[in-house]
Design a protein around this nucleic acid. Sequence first.
RNA 1: GCCGAUGUAGCUCAGUGGUAGAGUACUUCCUUGGUAAGGAAGGGGUCACGGGUUCAAGUCCCGUCAUUGGCUCCA
Length: 650
Amino acid sequence: MSHHTIHITLPDGSFNAYPKGITGLTIAQKISNSLAKTALAILVNGYVWDLSRPIDEDASVQILTWQDEEGKKTFWHSTAHLMAEALEALFPGIQFGIGPPISNGFYYDIDFGTHTFNATHLPMVEEKILALARQKNTYQRREVSKADAIAFFEKKGDVYKLELLQDLADGAITFYQQGNFTDLCKGPHIPHTGLIKAVKLLNIAGAYWRGNEKNKQLTRIYGISFMQTQALQDYVTSLEEAKTRNHQRLGKELKLFTFSDKVGIGLPLWLPRGTIFRERLEAFLRKAQLEAGYQPVITPHIGHKALYVTSGHYDKYGEDSFQPIQTPHEGEEFFLKPMNCPHHCEIYSHEPHSYKDLPIRLAEFGTVYRYEQHGELHGLVRTRAFTQDDAHIFCRPDQVQAEFAKVIDLVTYVFSSLGFSDYTARLSFRDPQQLSKYIGDMADWDKAEQAIEEVATQGSLRTVKALGEAAFYGPKLDFMVQDALGRSWQLGTVQLDYQLPIRFDLTYVGADNQKYRPVMIHRAPFGSLERFIAILLEHTGGKLPLWLAPDQVAILPISEKYAAYTEQVHQQLRGKGIRAIVDHRDEKIGKKIREAELMKIPYMLIIGEKEATTTTVAVRKQGAGDQGSLSIPQLVEKLMKDVPNSSPQL
RNA sequence: GCCGAUGUAGCUCAGUGGUAGAGUACUUCCUUGGUAAGGAAGGGGUCACGGGUUCAAGUCCCGUCAUUGGCUCCA
């Protein structure tokens, strides 16, 4: 084979000889014209490249389109550059920070200098972007020397790009230019701006340069773009859908919870309907945990300051917490508990333990209090008082893997029972760059991280590793769940901890009559009940399954003439433990149905002349309409079928 | 904590420096009805709070508080 020819292997395994220096675009054209038109970038031996970049060696390639995550990212990144060009044209002299793609779109951080910029400018920028897009300018890559790059940005006066350049090695610096805009960028980019057919700038926000709060705050502009205008329409529609599913809105509409400034910010108040919902959820987990060998415990909401000094939380968070509660006794200080583990450690150590007693699994729905930053509070997702479905497993080192595996089973069981089928386990390990952030013996950390990785990758769990996400006392396994709108949330967490048993001097007696150190596993499938409920509400759009619904059945008499029979039905359902309410208002049946539908009550029973004489009810299912008539025993049987065995009761 | 936006009736929201509004909810009355809104009347407001400008402020300016989109943080 001549040295002018290279081998290109496609994802299906087929390969062809091509002249050296062939571009991705040419390869795409050889495959099909339609592919060439939608191609955005090319994957060359695992790296994403421009379609215009010559390939000089044998390579495995894959043409990337909108269907590929990397293709989409490249498209959005290119749109960020185009937005920068538009902004520079409209606001001469502005300086640019960074402009990367994100999971849904892109942003660019900008220092507007003497210009003022606000949301009213966004439509104007959108128009300019689309006008520039229609010029179909190509994105041109060029390699530049560090000296030339510095000279370029010094002339332009862009201090941020100059700072970025400091960290880059000479010889590895590339510029990309489209139209009149040149940016420091490692690429890659789409072939030309004409592919960007629709763009929407979503919001503007402050963002610290390089994410450091000591640095200047830049203006971040978020946007998203598409290859077809219809796709943008669909995206806008899905944003509106997300808005109707917003948990705070649903919490208000369905009368589940509220907040009061008089009580304090970030402190949720559970309304009667929300309390039933929450208690159903707790009962479900209580039952599952009893079956899994957990022992419920109850501990107080405060503890001596010394407890948190021992645990290490005081050193780490003392200043950022709610401040201590004083007592009339000189020097005595209590903290609101920010964690349940210290209390549970004291329960463990109230009596000596044999190796035969382990594992001991202590579970509590423990309400904890954390002084979260003001700007961070967000509905039920981030509060200053929340309840963890917390448990601590005290086990022998040889039991760690089996216990960890059991916890994973429990968490996945909980998720699937609640309709979350799409989740990933995130291995949250130390940041190797900042080991000083973590306490304890690094050998224990190594053991712990290794154990987590082994257990998590044994089963069918999808895993992803995240360095720097560990807690300060140990590595974690965090469950990331996708909701019905495709958004990703962190829910349950499992943490392996060798430190607290040392700090609290926890021991057990081994077969050789010597003292040994137990290992602790912290775990919370829901994490925070508040947060979990927020996510569940958004996932279901407020249409809760029958076993969680605050009101399961709405009994709707057509007129007050059927009050006696209505009352009889109500009593019978209540006798079966079914949560039923009666709408006895002097309103037409259509209105009663509408309101029950809007309150998302799973079943409606319409009672009129026909039902009263035949002792039946006309059943209507939320969102599904008329289901025909049933007798009361038939109805009860039907409702029972709607409730999974996992539920402790209706 | 930082940057931006927002704050008007229980809720959703109009309101252009000149008498504070609508829909809905609530109360009362009429209506007694068949699968997503029957009709009428009525009550309900310190326009977030505090200053300022003005003959006059819901509206303009400043500050505070809260909510919200982000940033930082997150045991």
